Simulated assay, not measured.
Amino acid sequence: MILNLPFAALRAFEAVARHGSFSDAADELGVGQSAVSQHVKSLEEWLGHDLITRGARRSFPTRDGARLALSISDGLGQISEVCEDIRDKRRDDKTIVISCHPGFAFIWLFPRLLSFDHAHPESAISITTDTGLRGFARSEADIGIRYGTGDFPGYAVQPLMSETLCPVCAPSLLEGSKPLRRLADLAFHTQIRDEFAPTTTELPTWEYWARETGQSLPTPARIRSFGQTNMVLQATIQGDGVAMGRSPLVMDALADGRLVQPFAQTVRSPLEYWLVYPEDQRRQKKIAVFLDWITAEADAQMRRHASLSHRVAND
Score class of each variant (00 low, 15 high):
A124G: 07
Q234H: 14
S309D: 08
M244H: 00
V260N: 10
L70G: 04
L165F: 01
R54F: 12
K94Q: 13
P218Y: 12
D256G: 00
F104Q: 11
L160K: 08
T95I: 10
L109H: 11
A313C: 11
I125E: 00
A56Y: 10
T149W: 03
Q191W: 08
R224L: 09
G65D: 02
D27A: 07
V97T: 14
A243P: 01
F290Y: 02
G20A: 14
D74M: 00
H118Q: 12
S177R: 15
V312Y: 00
K94P: 04
R18D: 13
C100M: 15
P111R: 03
C83I: 15
I79E: 15
M251V: 05
L114F: 11
Q265G: 14
R222M: 13
G214S: 01
S162F: 00
I237V: 12
A288Q: 09
S21R: 02
R90D: 12
F290S: 06
I72N: 03
F116P: 01
E84I: 15
A255C: 04
S269Y: 04
L254C: 04
L113M: 07
D92C: 13
I287V: 01
R87M: 11
V40I: 09
L291K: 01
R87E: 14
D74N: 12
G214E: 04
W206C: 11
S71W: 10
A156Q: 09
Q261W: 02
R224N: 13
Q33S: 01
R11G: 08
D64H: 01
R246Q: 02
M161Y: 03
F60N: 09
Q215T: 07
N230I: 04
G77F: 08
F188L: 14
Q78K: 13
L174S: 12
R63S: 15
S34F: 02
A12T: 05
R58I: 03
V242G: 05
L165P: 07
G65A: 13
P262F: 07
L259F: 03
M161R: 13
L183R: 14
K285P: 00
S307Y: 06
A306L: 09
D93K: 05
T190W: 10
G55N: 00
D240R: 01
G148A: 12
A187P: 02
N314E: 11
D74P: 01
R304A: 10
T236M: 10
L113E: 09
R87N: 11
Q78D: 11
S309P: 07
V16C: 05
A313S: 12
I98L: 14
A313K: 11
G48H: 04
R282M: 10
T219N: 11
I237F: 02
L180F: 06
I287L: 07
L43K: 04
W293P: 15
A253E: 15
F152D: 00
A12Y: 12
Y147R: 15
V232A: 08
K285R: 06
I86D: 01
D252I: 08
T190V: 12
Q265H: 12
I294S: 11
A255R: 15
V82E: 10
R224Q: 14
C100V: 11
F13P: 05
A156H: 09
G103F: 01
R311M: 08
V260K: 06
W46N: 10
D142I: 06
H189F: 08
D240T: 02
P153G: 15
D256C: 06
V157N: 00
S23N: 09
Q265D: 09
L186I: 05
I127K: 02
N314Y: 08
W108R: 07
L29H: 01
D194K: 07
R222T: 06
V232G: 09
I145C: 04
